[in-house]
Simulated scan of single mutants.
Amino acid sequence: MTSTSPFSRYPFTPIAGRPGYEWPNGQRLAVYIGLNLETFAFGEGLGAELAPGGPQPDILNYAWRDYGNRVGVWRMLDLFDALDLPVSVLINSQIYKDCPAIATAFRKRGDEFLGHGRTNSERQGTMPEPAEAALIGEATAAIVQHEGRHPGGWLGPWISESPQTPDLLDEAGYEFVLDWCMDDQPVWMQTRRGRILSVPYPQELNDIPAIVGRKMNGDDFADMIVDQFDEMLEQSAAAPLVMGIALHPYIVGQPHRLRHLRRALAHICRFRGDVFLTRAGTIAAHVRSLPDGIVPGVSRA
């Protein structure tokens, strides 16, 4: 087996009628924050745009993104500390060179670091397999060097995958992937060596599609978070669910949006005893401990 098409990575299994289970503390809704720590090349490569960019160097959009690392993420750190919220850090390995103080700050909090490529100026899905494997290897080695452990999970820059990406991640020692948004529960995906776990990562509850793509305001995005949480908390009475919140400091770290984000996260924290506020890696570890056949997807070989 050299590769697997996306449609054969996992079988169709409707959420209705699946086996039930609980999260470690007996709750049925797990909530985690996926914080994207990203860096961008100056004068070249990919990047989200606040406004249509001009010829390179595109000063407006480069500086807007850089605001997230210089200012926005530090305001968000204060927010996470004030609410005592754990965070899953999705880190471009270039962060360790460009702005290492950010990694130090989250390391001191005890947050987990997950792979997110080298930089968000590039997209791995268009690379030949050897080049993609090298990208994964370089990003992984940087996290191991600085954090002292292999990252458990991976989110591709721009959610970009080649047909071989899950295979390469499995072979590189990753236990779970966040690229797939097809479910509200973790799902086992087929790889050419065995399987890898897909942990739900949101593309609706994500500030880039919502605010950059759909031009939503910060209050609307916060309302989305609250509505998603309230509805999923009710739905979780019938089945265990995962709610991720995808954030980028250069977007929601802007003061006028941060105020609304604070409101939404404070709402979630008021239900702290009723939900499992955690990190993506903890979700994956719990699912991996369950008997085979409980979690949808491919079975253990």
Rank of each mutant, 00 (worst) to 15 (best):
M1Q: 04
Y10G: 00
P11R: 09
G17N: 11
G20R: 15
R28T: 13
L29I: 02
A30P: 02
I33S: 06
G34C: 09
L35G: 07
N36P: 05
T39D: 14
G43W: 13
P52Q: 12
D58M: 03
L60P: 02
A63C: 09
W64S: 05
Y67A: 07
R70C: 05
V73Q: 04
V73R: 01
L77C: 13
L79F: 01
L83P: 09
V87N: 00
V89Q: 10
I95E: 14
F106Y: 12
F106I: 03
F106S: 05
K108E: 15
G117R: 00
G125H: 09
G137H: 11
E138Q: 14
A142Q: 09
H146M: 04
G148A: 07
R149Q: 12
G152W: 05
G153H: 09
P157E: 07
W158D: 07
S162V: 08
D167V: 06
E171I: 01
F176D: 04
L178T: 09
D179I: 04
D179V: 06
D183Q: 11
D184W: 05
V187R: 15
W188F: 14
T191H: 08
R193C: 01
R193F: 00
I196V: 10
P209E: 01
I211G: 02
V212D: 10
D219E: 14
F221A: 03
V242R: 10
G244H: 10
I245W: 13
I245A: 08
L247R: 13
L247I: 14
H248P: 06
Y250H: 15
Y250P: 00
I251N: 05
V252M: 14
V252D: 01
R257A: 00
L261G: 07
F276M: 02
L277T: 03
L277W: 03
T278A: 06
G281Y: 08
T282F: 09
I283Q: 05
A285L: 06
V287Y: 02
V287M: 04
L290Y: 11
L290E: 06
D292R: 00
G293W: 06
P296G: 05
P296T: 06
P296A: 05
G297D: 09
V298R: 06
S299T: 02
S299D: 10
